[in-house]
Amino acid sequence: MGPVALAIHGGCGVMAKLDLSEEEWAAARVDLRRSLEAGWAVLSAGGRALDAVEAAVVVMEDSPHFNAGYGAALNAAGYHELDASIMDGTTQTGGAVAGSRHIRNPVKAARMVMERGEMVLVAGKAADEYAEAGGLETVPNDYFTTERRVKALAAMKEHERKGTAAGASESEKHGTVGAVALDAKGHLAAATSTGGYNNKPEGRVGDSPVIGAGTYARDGVCAVSGTGKGEFFILHAVGHEVASRVAYLGESLEQAASKVIIEDFKPYGIGAGLVAVDAMGNISAPYNTDGMFRGWVTAEGKFFVATHDQVFAL
């Protein structure tokens, strides 16, 4: 049996250090650890990478500290539209939902879409109906609303009124959650979930449910989950680009991931980050913003989480 590895992110562009109390930062780190524990429990028991990434993402979807599921961003009309995807590096299959209003855990619906194999992506009302018919939990749209997101929407509308939206902080704009894993049998998987960005236009779909952009996994190469300005992740096919640089150019995971996030995106001045794991269990988590919620587990089972430049061993 080979090495196992797990890494997660809770979105780049985390709040400025002074925007939250230490108690609030600590609470976010607790949920990052809970996410890692959920995924690691699967991997350490010999389970599948696919199950591990789903378990890790579900924890973050249920946490108010991240922009996915409960606590997701509000669109311009003041309601939630949720996106998610998952990909199995073994079979090169994936599933996704976009614009869901009622699925409590969109990553579970993405998994259902993938496993049924009828399609790769289902959107809007049809996604909600598909999930409900499949036995997944659905909730009223306001279940996802938190006071922090209401304030963020108000802040973005004020920026819009003043014409200063381009200068809004990353935390005011967007956020995502994701996980990547390598299991003991050498299989890779990735999953990503998001509420999009605060004050997004109704019907806008970003990269998180787009296989090859926000989520990608290929056995023998790497698994990738991204966060940031989704339109650029789609146009640059970021997940596939990182994997291609590893597979075809022979770059290390760190070289490939950093090339895309740090170098390729520099001319555009947009916030971006990702987590990735390769076939040897190496982990990379580059970001170009002030911070990124992230965490990982070493092969020895040691847990680490981070928000800005400080790393916490747990």
Rank of each mutant, 00 (worst) to 15 (best):
G291H: 13
E129K: 04
Y216P: 03
A181E: 06
A189T: 08
V53W: 10
N282H: 08
E24A: 13
G94A: 04
V97K: 00
T215S: 05
T227F: 07
G239Q: 01
A56I: 01
P201F: 03
E54Q: 14
K162E: 15
M119R: 15
A27R: 05
A49V: 03
K266Q: 14
G2T: 11
L182I: 14
T194C: 09
V107Y: 01
N67I: 06
T93P: 05
V242A: 12
E22S: 15
A49P: 01
L36Q: 06
L274I: 02
A181H: 03
G273E: 02
G163H: 04
L36I: 14
L188F: 07
A168G: 03
A84H: 07
G99Y: 05
H9V: 07
G239R: 01
V210R: 03
G206W: 00
H308G: 11
D183E: 14
R104P: 03
T146F: 10
I234N: 02
G95L: 01
A166Q: 12
A16I: 10
G71S: 04
G291S: 10
T90D: 10
G134H: 07
D207W: 07
I86D: 02
L235D: 13
I262L: 14
A127S: 04
L235C: 12
R34P: 09
G206A: 04
E172P: 01
G196D: 05
E24C: 02
Y197S: 05
D290I: 15
